[in-house]
Each structure stands twice: as structure tokens, then as C-alpha cells.
Design a protein around this nucleic acid. Structure first.
Lengths: 348, 348
DNA sequence: CTGAAAGCGCTTACAG
DNA sequence: CTGAAAGCGCTTACAG
């Protein structure tokens, strides 16, 4: 039938997957036992130099590539760490993934990345898959899919579930908000409004709380209707809508702080559409730094985040737990943020 | 010594990793053999309904999670596909990863993501790791780390190596450039310049070529010094520099097409710094659509890409090869792009 | 310094 | 319809 294959004898359904040489192939070639070959390739001190050389030469000659699956089964550790994020297409998460990947790779671990599209069902499935692969640990930015805590070592990040997991790490949401509000107040603003994300997420909740505390600390009043919440994905469109609601207030704010770059961009757009100038008519500051914040018109004052660092920390925490075991409540880590002063706040 | 562990008898170095129940545990609980338990969980038609129910109940009761490592070793297929990208932090790549992940997941595969930071050495290492994990296929956006083609099924994307691999997929670079140049020419521009990336990459080469062909097709002259190449990462800074060089030309261009969003943003910045207005003084169009292209001032005319679609295609291609095997030269797929007309080109 | 043997947790011919 | 046995490719006590 078919018969168009290049190599003779290959079954039709079998793709051209070359048979990998195994350790016993190497051992045979080097005239030693499999045990010795294994130890030689691990550079065990129990093997003589000449033997090691012979085994290594044999491995090279055969193009031997150790089978990690077999190794994992035998050693009962896959050397895998799973990371599950709501959406890998979002800059924040992809940068966290990078940071985590770097430290995991250095420690000899591989990373299994799962993007859940913010669906609880997909998150549960991702978690199950990870567990079936016997990952050594999990880095989890949950979208609400964790009904019962997955057994094993999990470090929560971004979206924290209090008191569970071995650790959790997030940005310094409250402190960051404080920086933003204080800066705006420093420009003389007294009517500062807030555009944020749903308080069901850690960022949404902590940033709103940070905003309120700052307002109070500065002795300012929280005006009615001056805190607006956007949609679940913190979309620019919902940021624009929120801004419009703010502008319709009997006495609109003179300054607005947005809890994310997307929200801020939408807000800026809404201002422009309303014929308002930023910062002359409304000052604006953003929690997240948009990718091209300095190229916007006006360049946007925002918090410079260190997303990679967050990923590195999360990975280090799971690695640490892997090494020393866990006991006690989760450690809570907050990654500091820094104010990047540009023009949208009113600075020259 | 230590003795701070909660559960009795746990060795100090062993983290609190619960012992997973195995298939024989399930079998014992259900009073069947391991073979039967295995078949029951696979819903084999050879097993009676009552037995299946009993086995499933036992599995549920014990919280059984099949060990994929053992299964992979036994079936000699990890059901893994590797994807290696230069930088997962870049929107394009993370979107491709998402697209690929979606179709792979649906087909029952897991994705191993490797980000190489554009270093050939890291790329080689990533490839080796993937092979050691016996991935069934590889999706590769190479940064030049492929000296000898890794054995196995590889689909190249973004950066193509001619005539190798089972398939390659990239954006319709030449056609896209044509769209951009023609649109600018439609505005009456005759002095159109180009800012691109290094021609050592597929995108760099094909986009420059596409530019030149379009210019020629339109009967326009390619002015000396009117094609400028930025740095290896297509940075905004190098785009700005390229723009400055263009503006210093004895007779500067009236329109510029940038081969990427980053380059375009840099160019726009340089224009602004030079006191030039876009599009009044210089019209601008960009190959890639920046994340917030419509929020820029002016909103930028660009090609709306379908990065996810590219990832989906790449994954489908590797899956196809997995199923039917490979023969013949690689199939070459180009993902179409679409013109998103906004304001930077001169449209009202 | 080296080797024979057991076993990690599955799946799957083979037999009944 | 069910089970006993072999084996995927390693690593690692155990013995010498």
C-alpha cells in the first residue's frame, strides 16, 4: 500500500524515530557492566580513570543520550517543577516564568509551564497533570481552581491564598500604592481617585487597600464614587469605562491612580477622548509599568516592577523547601517596587 | 537529632512528599490483578462493567494518580513536545507558545518550554535536555544553536533553516511588507525608507527582501542609505538610531516602514525628539502591531498578526508528522497578516 | 574497583 | 473476562 517511506522496513504507523542507544549498549561497547557504565557516566569516584575514559568514549561514539524517564522512575524524582499561570501571553506572567526558569535550570530542574486561560477547570486539570508527572514542586498563580490544596510543595505567587502552601510571593502591593498616591499628593492633588481590578484577586484587594490607607494616612477624604473597579482581566476597555464614570462625577478627581498598566492605558485613552489633557486636566499614575511607558504621550509615571525577580524568588522558595523540607506556616515574601517618575503625574 | 518533623519516622532530608498509591495498591483494594486494574482504568472493552466500577471506586478511594513517568517508560513515549524560543518574555513568542500549547494539550501532549535568551550554547543545551526527556517532537525558533540538526521531529518556526526539519512556519514576511509599502505609496509617498532587523534572521531577511521587491514593483527608486538595520534584538533604541540616520540623509524619506513594533516605537520617539510630527512630517507604518498600537499618539498603522495561529499551526504540523510519519522535504507554511490602518500612515 | 540482581510503576503480549 | 510474567532503561544497595 502506502510504500512511500524512505527507509526500508519501517512500519507505516511508526514515525522515523531513531532507536536510542541505551546504557547497556554503551556498557557492551566499553566492555563493562551496566552498573559500571552508569557510575562512570556519573563520574563516580569508585570508578578508575581509564574505565571512565573508555565508557565516555563509548557513549560518545554511540551518540548516547541518557533516558531521563528511566532515571526519573528509578530515582523517584522527575526533577520537574510545574508553574501554572492564568495567561502566559501576559507580560507579567511570561517574565515571572523566565525568572523562575532561570533559577530552576541552574539547579538542574526542568520547568513545566501551564497556561490556564483563567479557567478554574483548566487549572484543576493542569494541577492534576503536574501531579501525575510527579513534579517535585509547583509554582501557582491561581485563578481559583484550587478547591482542595494539591498535595506536595506549592508556592503561591501573584494571587495568594492565605496560610496555605509552603510560601507565597507577590509584589509589594500596598507599599507600591502608597508610593503612587504620595507622589500624586505631593503635586498638590487632594481629589485622588482609584481605578482597580476586582478585589477577589490578591492584587485587586491589596492595591485597593493600599490606596485607602494612603489616602487616610495623608489626611485626605475618600470621595464617594472615587474608587472604580474594572473587569476580571483588568482590560483597557474596562479601565476606559471606569475613567468615564469618574469624569461624570459631580466633582471629578484631579488625579487618578490606576492599579495596572492596562487600566491606566484605557484611562488615558478615555481622557483623550473626552478632550482632557494629561496631566494638565487629570494627572495619572499607574501601578504597573507598561512595556513602552516612556514612549507614550505623555510618558507615564508608574511603578517599575521586577517581575523576573518575583519568579526567581518563587523558584528559590520551592527549591529551598525541596531541600530542607517544610514546617510551620508559609513564608510571605513581598517583592519591592520602585517609582519611575515620568510626566503623566505632572512632573516636568 | 533534628526532630522537629511533624510526622514520626520521616528522615530529615526527605521533604513531606506523600507516598503516592500505585496501581497495585488499587488492584489490591479492588481485589483484582494489576493487569486488570490497568485495563479497567483505561476503560478497556475487555473488562466487565462491574469490575471497572470496582477498580474506579478503589482508585478514587485511594486518591490514585497514575504515574506518567512509569507509563512513559513502558510505552516509550513521553507524550511531550518541546518548544524552544529565544525569549519567552517577548509577546510574540509567548503568544506562539500559547497557541501551540492549546493544540498540544487537546491532543494529549504536554509542552516543555525552553527560553534560551538567544544564546546558542543555551539553545544546544535545551535541545539536549529535550532529547534526553525523549520528547516526541520539537518546535524550534532557533537563535543559531543548531549546529547539527537534532534527530527527531522538528518544526522550525519564526527563524527558518531551509530544507531541514519536517516543516517550517513563519509569518508572511514578504507579503506583509508589500501591504505596508503599498499603503504608504497609496498616500503618495515616493521616498519610502526601511528600518529593519539583521538579515541573519528569517524575518530580517525576508522583510527587507519584501520591502525591496515592493519598491521595485511600484516603480520607485531605492534611495541610497534608505535601508537601515538595527541591532540583533530589534531594540527600540536601535530603531531610534536608525531613524536619526535616516533624518540626517541629504534628502530624508517622507515615509518609513519599520520591520517590527519595537523598531517603529523607537523611530517614532526619534521623530518626536527631532521635533517632527507623525504623519505630517514623516509617515510611519510598522510590521508588528504593538500591544497598545491604538493608544499611541498617533495610533500606529501596522500589520495585525496572528501569533497564536502560528503556534497552533506549528503544533499541528508536528502532530501530523507524529501520526503519519515524515517523507519528502519540509512543508513551508506562511501565516497571513492583515493591515490594520490607523493614523501614523496619514489616514484620517 | 567492578558486577549481578533487584526494582522504580506501569502496559501488554500471551495464556487460560 | 482475568491474570502471571516480562520488560521499558535506568540506579543502587549488596557482594566480592
Amino acid at each position: 500500500m502506502a510504500g512511500s517511506g524512505q527507509s526500508a522496513g519501517a512500519a507505516t504507523t511508526v514515525p522515523a524515530r531513531a532507536q536510542h542507544p541505551t546504557l547497556v549498549d554503551v556498557a557492551r561497547q566499553a566492555n563493562v557492566s551496566a552498573s559500571t557504565a552508569s557510575r562512570a557516566l556519573q563520574d563516580s569516584p569508585r570508578i578508575s580513570e581509564p574505565t571512565k575514559r573508555r565508557v565516555r568514549a563509548a557513549a560518545r561514539k554511540l551518540g548516547y543520550e541518557p533516558n531521563r524517564i528511566a532515571r526519573s522512575l528509578r530515582t523517584r524524582s522527575a526533577n520537574f517543577v510545574g508553574i501554572v499561570v492564568p495567561d502566559i501571553g501576559i507580560g507579567f506572567y511570561s517574565r515571572v516564568v523566565k525568572g523562575a526558569g532561570d533559577v530552576l535550570e541552574k539547579a538542574g530542574y526542568q520547568m513545566l509551564v501551564m497556561s490556564t486561560e483563567r479557567e478554574a477547570e483548566r487549572e484543576r486539570k493542569a494541577l492534576r497533570t503536574l501531579l501525575e508527572h510527579r513534579v517535585d514542586g509547583i509554582l501557582l498563580a491561581t485563578s481559583g481552581g484550587v478547591t482542595n490544596l494539591p498535595r506536595g510543595l506549592v508556592v503561591f505567587f501573584d494571587n495568594i491564598v492565605p496560610d496555605v502552601g509552603v510560601a507565597n510571593v507577590a509584589l509589594a502591593n500596598r507599599a507600591g500604592m502608597g508610593l503612587l498616591v504620595e507622589h500624586l499628593a505631593g503635586h498638590g492633588h487632594e481629589r485622588i481617585a482609584y481605578i482597580g481590578g476586582p478585589v477577589s484577586s490578591t492584587s485587586g484587594e491589596e492595591r485597593l487597600d493600599g490606596f485607602r490607607r494612603s489616602i487616610a494616612r495623608l489626611g485626605l477624604a475618600e470621595l464617594p464614587g472615587s474608587t472604580q473597579i474594572g473587569d476580571a482581566v483588568w482590560s483597557s476597555a474596562s479601565g476606559a469605562e471606569a475613567m468615564r464614570r469618574l469624569l461624570e462625577l459631580p466633582t471629578p478627581p484631579t488625579a487618578v491612580v490606576a492599579a495596572s498598566d492596562t487600566l491606566a492605558l484605557g484611562a488615558m485613552q478615555a481622557c483623550r477622548d473626552a478632550g482632557l489633557r494629561v496631566p494638565a486636566d487629570v494627572a495619572l499614575a499607574s501601578f504597573d509599568d507598561p512595556a513602552f511607558g516612556e514612549l507614550l504621550d505623555p510618558p507615564i509615571t508608574a511603578l517599575a516592577r521586577n517581575d523576573r525577580r518575583l519568579g526567581e524568588l518563587a523558584a528559590s522558595l520551592v527549591l529551598h523547601a525541596l531541600e530542607v523540607g517544610v514546617d510551620g506556616p508559609p513564608s510571605e515574601v513581598r517583592v519591592p517596587v520602585e517609582l519611575a517618575v515620568r510626566r503623566s503625574c505632572g512632573c516636568p
